[in-house]
């Protein structure tokens, strides 16, 4: 791994942390924080491997006792609460977003970006977060979905679109994911 990759990883861990400082937007009773925007951006801009490591690093920062989650939470307590599953899914989510983004890289645009972000940044997070919620809180699957997925759907949808729009523009001026030129040349 190059030095530059280490810097990118630290950078996107920090970006997810800084997005936790953005005040939550209230949609009905549900607060929507900007933090998972950082998860999607990490995958969409750095790609799978570095995106994964950056969000893993973010979780390490939280675990070692820094109050970096939205509204100033942090420490090991964050990994024991009902939303532990969502938190733990972030690196995997960034990985899947990155994997799809790399797959779409040659023709990446808003639509492909949204697809990658929805699959990686919403479906993957719910697929891990909801069952963990059900297990930790002794809830039935239906109750877990009603309380742990549906209320966040609109906000997460907005973030998926926003992250794709941002990634498209960043790709235009400073692409980080490399086009697999050699693979193209060999063909």
């Amino acid at each position: 791994m190059k030095t530059k990759d280490l810097v990118y990883i630290a950078l996107f861990a920090a970006i997810t942390a800084v997005l936790g400082l953005v005040p939550a937007i209230q949609v009905g009773p549900v607060p929507i924080t900007a933090q998972t925007l950082g998860v999607m951006l990490a995958g969409a801009i750095l790609g799978a491997r570095r995106g994964f490591l950056s969000q893993l690093l973010f979780l390490v920062l939280v675990a070692i006792g820094l109050p970096l989650l939205a509204s100033g939470h942090g420490g090991l307590a964050a990994f024991t609460g009902p939303s532990a599953g969502y938190l733990i899914s972030w690196p995997i989510a960034a990985f899947v977003v990155g994997l799809l983004t790399e797959r779409f890289w040659g023709r990446y645009n808003l639509a492909w970006g949204i697809l990658a972000n929805v699959v990686g940044g919403i479906l993957v997070i719910y697929a891990i977060g909801v069952p963990v919620l059900a297990a930790i809180a002794n809830l039935s699957p239906e109750a877990a979905i009603v309380s742990g997925a549906l209320p966040f759907l609109i906000g997460d949808g907005i973030k998926a679109v926003l992250a794709a729009a941002i990634a498209v523009q960043v790709r235009r001026s400073y692409p980080v994911i490399e086009t697999p030129q050699r693979a193209v040349a060999l063909r």
Binding site: L6, L11, A14, A17, L57, L66
Partner: peptide, 8 residues
Amino acid sequence: VIAMALRF
């Protein structure tokens, strides 16, 4: 990388 993230 932990130190760098804290710095960033």
